[in-house]
Design a protein around this nucleic acid. Structure first.
Length: 266
DNA sequence: ATGACGGATCTAATCCGA
């Protein structure tokens, strides 16, 4: 069977529920992982998802900020959220499901942005980000028979071609060596494979986020690839497709992030 | 680094994003 998993930092699910509906109707992923839902659990637009056949929801929200949700056509079990850095700020939700005879655990992350200054002494937000990444080192791509998938807005652009200018962003939070090294550590120690760069070579520029602050995001094209889909090597071997859905960035009142969809033949 | 947006919040001005 074919399994498709999408990730999208929606920047308010209530404000953009119609865009999510349009995206689901058009692309029909089996599972959708949202970040920055910016609502409490009881404010989550569950009915809209039910109507479209996405009847299984794992929501970890909070008032106003952050928040993640994984919604699915496939039954979800063992829903849990890890309270990274003991901050109670709704940045992770994990679900399990069966697909094509495989057990899959899917982690949905919204890693702290880290503020402006890449200095842990002056900027507590940057310290929080690094502590968060340190705790993520416990994750493993494959344990026992379970294949893990890790998606979300990791707020780090690891490769030179994940940013519009490697040189100009080396001291900018999201592309500093301390962050990209920390991410590489999580990636290597966990035995992960990059299911986005598995299909789109690191020789090619690739962005999933463009600032709201430019007049014309396409013309200036100063983007970054902050969104990620990782999996166990066994999943990389059966990956059939990877879609980067740029069209949503041109929709009316768009999110500053675009969706990415990974398809596996299980 | 650029350019000066856009979200949520006890609706006005403030915090936050990256």
């Amino acid at each position: 069977m074919s399994l498709s998993i999408a990730t999208w930092n929606i920047n308010s699910v209530r404000l953009r529920i119609q865009q999510v509906e349009k995206f689901l109707n058009e692309y029909q992923p089996d599972v959708l992982c949202l970040q920055e839902i910016k609502c409490q659990n009881d404010q989550f637009p569950a009915k809209a998802f039910n109507k479209l056949g996405y009847e299984f929801h794992a929501v970890k929200g909070q008032k106003g900020y952050h928040g993640v949700a994984t919604i699915s056509k496939i039954p979800l079990v063992d829903i849990s959220s890890t309270n990274y850095c003991n901050m109670g700020d709704s940045r992770h939700i994990s679900v399990r499901f069966k697909a094509g005879g495989k057990d899959i655990q899917l982690h949905n992350f919204y890693v702290p942005a880290g503020g402006d200054e890449p200095d842990t002494d002056k900027n507590p937000k940057f310290a929080h980000k690094l502590n968060f990444l340190e705790e993520m080192r416990a994750l493993r791509a494959l344990d026992e028979k379970t294949h893990n998938v890790l998606v979300g807005d990791l707020n780090i652009a690891p490769h030179e071609n994940d940013v519009w200018s490697h040189k100009q962003l080396l001291k900018i939070v999201s592309h500093t060596p301390v962050e990209t090294d920390a991410l590489a550590k999580i990636f290597d120690e966990g035995g992960w494979t990059d299911l986005i760069r598995n299909k789109i070579s690191t020789d090619e520029k690739l962005f999933t986020w463009w600032s709201y602050r430019s007049r014309d995001w396409q013309q200036s094209n100063r983007g970054r690839r902050l969104d990620h889909i990782w999996g166990s090597p066994g999943l990389a071997a059966v990956q059939s497709d990877l879609q980067v859905v740029r069209e949503t960035r041109n929709w009316e009142k768009p999110s500053d992030h675009i969706p990415v969809i990974c398809t596996l033949d299980l």
